[in-house]
């Protein structure tokens, strides 16, 4: 396949792009560890944010095993492997949809508890943040999985539209419309859309949330 003289060498600490690492690991599997070293922690954190530590542990190791099994399908023109890895992780996270629902439910619950408990004597900003988080959690929970995945790849995984398109194997236009739909739902739930309008019209903030 490849005839690079460095195939047999152990010196894998040079600065390489992801596609370079992948190309080399097709001949020398030990090089693949470098891709893990680079990206495992962001995959873990993303999965943990979505579905908790237990799921993150599983999703992270499985992501790299699946990546390894699908190594030959990687498009070597792509320097950044993150969209690919996040795409695999996104699929694997679906197995943990119950854990994810639990995480979101806990956030909703925490918010409602907080807003009742601190009703009289509240530290406004903090409570509002919790309340907003509760609303976001509830919205995420009710949202179609595919919209939620798109939104979180954007907001939590920091992928670009193009990156999400690669990760989810859909056209960029689809990513854009999913994101628009998801954000519109989110804004409606947070009443930010209304807020934006009223702010301009009246120069003052509408009702909730106060920290907007």
């Amino acid at each position: 396949m490849l005839r690079e003289p460095f195939c047999g060498q152990r010196a894998i600490h040079s600065v390489s792009t992801d596609n370079e690492i992948i190309r080399r690991s097709r001949d020398s599997p030990e090089v693949f560890g470098e891709l893990y070293d680079r990206h495992a922690s962001v995959i873990y954190r993303y999965a943990a944010r979505r579905a908790g530590d237990f799921a993150a542990d599983d999703v992270t190791s499985e992501t790299f095993l699946v990546a390894w099994e699908q190594l030959e399908t990687y498009d070597l023109d792509r320097e950044d492997a993150r969209p690919w890895l996040f795409g695999i992780a996104t699929n694997l996270l679906r197995r943990h949809h119950r854990a994810e629902a639990k995480v979101l439910k806990a956030a909703v619950k925490a918010a409602s508890r907080e807003s009742v408990a601190d009703d009289s004597d509240r530290i406004a900003a903090r409570v509002d943040a919790v309340v907003a988080t509760g609303r976001i959690a509830r919205t995420l929970k009710l949202m179609a999985a595919i919209d939620r995945e798109t939104l979180l790849l954007y907001a939590w995984a920091d992928l670009t539209y193009e990156g999400i398109a690669q990760a989810m194997d859909v056209p960029v236009g689809t990513v854009r419309s999913r994101l628009n739909r998801a954000r519109r739902t989110l804004r409606t739930e947070l009443r930010l859309e209304i807020l934006d309008e009223t702010e301009n019209d009246h120069g003052r903030l509408a009702a909730a949330p106060r920290n907007a």
Partner: peptide, 16 residues
Amino acid sequence: DDLQLLREMRSDIGSA
């Protein structure tokens, strides 16, 4: 905005 709020949600989750 909504995205900022979303980005802050569960941002306390640490690294692995």
